[in-house]
Amino acid sequence: MTAPPLVQGEALTRAFPRRGGLFGGGAPVVALRGVDITIARGEAVGVVGESGCGKSTLGRVLLHLLPPTSGRVLFEGEDLAEQPGDKLRALRRRMQMVFQDPYGSLDPRRTVGAQIADGILIHGLAQGAEAEEQVAALLRQVGLDPEHAQRLPHEFSGGQRQRIAVARALATRPDFIVADEPVSALDVSIQAQVVNLLADLRAQLGLALLFISHDLHVVRHLCDRVVVMYLGRVMEEGPAEAFFRAPMHPYSRALLAATPSLRHRGPVVEPIAGEVPSIASPPSGCVFRTRCPMAQPACAEAVPPLEPLPGMAGRMIACRRAAELV
């Protein structure tokens, strides 16, 4: 019998109400629209797409930091929304997040050692000297000196702060980590160090990782599988190697074409035309149709389901003209 995925999102929708301001009082803004996603134990899944496509919202919903408006999140087959407080608290120990801004996610008034120790103490994993020893071990694990535990966040570089954020996420011994653009604010050389650190830790600890990024190079290096999002919907999903070798969806092809060193073999793809529509009022039918070079009038009629591509293991695409893309 096949084991269930470690994390599974089913038909996830997340809407945000409009309150006050110039546009207040209207219909809710829907950031996720029926997203299905699975993450196996030890697997790294990259989520890519333009800004505002719902990547960060998806990560927060999977961690139950934001409850879904509809749909459900399962952790080892258990619906997070149905768990009592004590059970959900225990599950939260096994799910952690590394935020995009390593400085904004740390308390500037507390030592980094104290912040790394928070999860250890809150979940009763150790106390006193034993907790201090675990903090020291975590700092070594991410390539920092244990003596750094007594310093404040402003005393570190951006790369060091992100390593501290990783150490804090690891403190509760999680099985699943959401890394939300964890290297976008760092210099290129520091980005490589942090990405390699995540890859090493994943291999050593068997972590499942949801890696949210707009940097396709990093996703190709780190991830086993790629999920492409646009205006709250999944456009394409598949194994990373196959995806980067031959993207299928017109949007995926345009994304890779915008990164010259990742351009796939095949016909030349022109850059995506036009602006991203407002997520508050997306196009009918296929949300990408207003910018798609292959769009037909029928594309406006119904939302194309995310379906497997025949003969292509693990490849899925949401496009009415999928048969023409193979």
Score class of each variant (00 low, 15 high):
R263A: 12
H221M: 12
H249Q: 05
V218A: 13
P247Y: 00
S252D: 05
R245D: 14
C292N: 08
L216H: 03
T259G: 00
L205E: 11
T290C: 11
A254P: 01
L262K: 02
Y251C: 02
R220Q: 15
A258C: 09
L255M: 08
A258N: 05
A295M: 11
V219S: 03
V194G: 00
I190C: 06
M229C: 10
L198Q: 01
L198V: 04
Q193Y: 02
M235I: 03
F211I: 10
A280H: 04
M229L: 15
L201S: 10
P239L: 08
F211Q: 02
L256Y: 01
Q191H: 11
R233P: 02
P239F: 05
A273P: 00
P271R: 13
L255S: 04
R265T: 14
R265I: 06
L222M: 13
S213W: 00
R202D: 13
V194F: 01
L256N: 01
D224P: 02
G285A: 10
P239S: 07
H249S: 04
L256S: 02
L207S: 09
P271C: 14
H221R: 15
G274F: 03
P283N: 11
S261T: 14
Y230W: 05
I190H: 00
P293T: 11
S281T: 15
A203K: 15
E270T: 11
R245H: 12
P267M: 12
N196V: 01
V276I: 15
P260G: 09
P283W: 07
E270I: 02
V269S: 12
L216A: 06
G238S: 07
A298Y: 13
P267G: 15
P277H: 07
M229V: 10
S281P: 00
R263T: 01
I212A: 01
E241S: 14
C223D: 10
A208Q: 08
V227H: 02
R233V: 14
R263Q: 13
A208C: 09
G274W: 07
T259V: 15
V234M: 00
L207A: 11
F244G: 01
I272S: 10
V195M: 13
S252M: 03
